[in-house]
């Protein structure tokens, strides 16, 4: 009678062993630069795919391998354990990792304003975070911008875990669903809904997104590689923003067939606004500033999402960026 019970206890150490084994396996080869993204390939990773398509990695002698993410993939973990050289994630995750003593360094921000947010129905008339209090919110459990906003405004709407499908949301006009401004409204229109996208920034939480980072230890020893890598990203991203079509078609045909060209086209329009800011004008694409980083870190601490206050200053840098003026000189 006791046997199954005692066997169940074995599950945990077994799991732990597996994790350790997994952590030890799969180190990247020295000369290959691997980049782990956060989701299936889309224009949210345009800087990476544009550089790949246009050969900007190749000309710098960088052997880059871009790995698509997906559910359960957490790029900070992969970079921290050395399974990937670079990662792409939300800056909140860099702060969360820092709170767990994982030291990462962000070197490039794809979005000056995060396209992540909540999608509501146009008919709901919802405009701001207070209105959301009356809705049912379908969202990935633990999403930082949402936890911060809830904490700060004190709203407590009904919540359910997001399963990745918009079907239920489309059927319920009093629901809000987590989404990316770049792609999800387009999807929603296709299933006949009239969506209104409220980004985290519009709801009151501005953060960067699509942040590309590496580990502090890698950064210390590979300054030049990072310099070259970021330069390729900037060059690729600039090309994409100027002429998105080839990159969209490349992602669609070569990387992820499920990413439709029309979705990419819609996204590219929105990205023109989200990818640039005053900073990028002066410092170059991918730039960040201390104010935004510190704000995010402070608010996460105040909301109790991280237990120790994290100094954000060491988590990011603009030092590898090349401004447009400098590029022109070159």
């Amino acid at each position: 009678m006791t046997r199954p019970a005692s066997l169940m206890w074995l599950q945990l150490p077994l799991l732990a062993t597996l994790i350790v084994i997994a952590a030890c396996a799969e180190k990247p080869k020295d000369d290959i630069i691997s980049v782990q993204t956060d989701w299936f390939a889309s224009t949210d990773h345009a800087a990476l795919y544009a550089a790949e398509l246009h050969g900007y990695f190749d000309v710098r002698n960088l052997h880059v391998e871009i790995r698509q993410g997906g559910p359960g993939i957490r790029a900070p973990n992969d970079v921290a354990t050395g399974r990937a050289t670079f990662g792409l994630a939300l800056p909140e995750n860099i702060i969360l990792a820092a709170a767990e003593d994982v030291e990462l360094l962000s070197v490039f921000a794809s979005y000056q304003e995060s396209p992540i947010g909540l999608m509501v129905h146009e008919s709901s008339g919802v405009l701001n975070i207070e209105d959301i209090a009356n809705l049912t919110v379908q969202i990935f459990p633990g999403q930082v911008f949402w936890e911060v906003l809830k904490y700060e405004t004190g709203i407590a709407p009904a919540e359910i875990a997001f399963d990745g499908s918009m079907t239920a949301w489309a059927e319920n006009s009093d629901w809000a669903v987590q989404g990316f401004a770049t792609t999800n409204p387009f999807d929603a229109r296709k299933v006949g809904a009239e969506p209104r996208m409220l980004t985290a920034t519009q709801l009151g939480f501005r953060a960067y997104a699509g942040v590309i980072f590496t580990s502090q230890s890698y950064a210390q020893e590979n300054q030049e590689t990072i310099q070259a890598f970021v330069a390729a990203l900037q060059q690729g991203y600039a090309d994409f923003l100027a002429n998105p079509q080839p990159v969209i078609e490349y992602i669609n045909s070569e990387v992820n067939n499920d990413f439709l060209v029309e979705v990419g086209e819609a996204a590219a329009v929105i990205m023109q606004d989200l990818a640039v800011s005053q900073e990028t004008e002066s410092l170059g694409l991918g730039a960040m500033n201390a104010e935004v980083w510190n704000d995010v870190a402070t608010r996460m601490f105040e909301a109790g999402i991280v237990r120790n206050e994290v100094g954000a200053s060491t988590l990011w840098t603009n030092e590898y960026l090349t401004s447009r003026d400098e590029q022109d000189v070159q």
Binding site: G72, R74, P76, N77, N93, L96, A97, E100, V102, V137, I139, F140, P141, G142, Q143, V144, A156, A158, E159, I160, A161, D163, I305
Partner: peptide
Amino acid sequence: MVVGRGGEKAGLGYYVVFSATQLK
């Protein structure tokens, strides 16, 4: 984990995803 309630009505499955999302 996939369709559970959040907030006060959250079950353990919700917190599995919640804590994993926050890298805890």
